[in-house]
């Protein structure tokens, strides 16, 4: 008898699942109404510590997509440019930096319709 019941149960196997899910809260969120939050380690955008950077070129050399660009005039005056549209936010620059100057944080860049907005001057030191 129990065997027959088990056999019949396989015809409506998902019924308990769908009823329990029906009465619980939905997993998806209504996007604009509920903001999605990023974890603390989320690699959102590239930032820089102005004081620490010495313009050593390590991050530019190791960047896999050439998203960083260093314009160097002398030892004191240089600027670091970040191309957000090329960047894959892999975090290699943070790893390569020996001076804890460049890092990624979990703030998120809004998209833009204009390419110019993606070219960010991270740092400007001295006279250029």
């Amino acid at each position: 008898m129990k065997k027959i019941l088990n056999h019949l149960r396989t015809f409506i196997y998902l019924l308990p699942n769908i009823t329990s899910v029906f009465f619980s809260k939905a997993e998806t969120i209504k996007y604009p109404q509920e903001p999605s939050n990023y974890s603390s380690g989320f690699r959102g955008s590239v930032r820089i510590n102005q004081q620490n950077c010495v313009g050593c070129n390590a991050c530019v050399r190791d960047c896999p997509v050439s998203a960083l660009q260093l314009i160097k005039v002398s030892k004191e005056s240089f600027s670091l440019i970040h191309q957000q549209d090329l960047c894959t936010y892999c975090g290699q620059c943070q790893l390569s930096c020996k001076f804890n100057a460049i890092y990624l944080d979990n703030t998120y860049n809004q998209p833009s319709a204009d390419r110019k907005n993606f070219r960010v001057v991270l740092l400007k030191k001295g006279k250029l």
């Binding site: 029906f22 619980s24 939905a26 969120i29």
Partner: peptide, 11 residues
């Protein structure tokens, strides 16, 4: 809506 709720979505 019902199918969405059965599947755990908002609908």
């Amino acid at each position: 809506k019902l199918i969405a709720r059965f599947q755990g979505r908002v609908g």
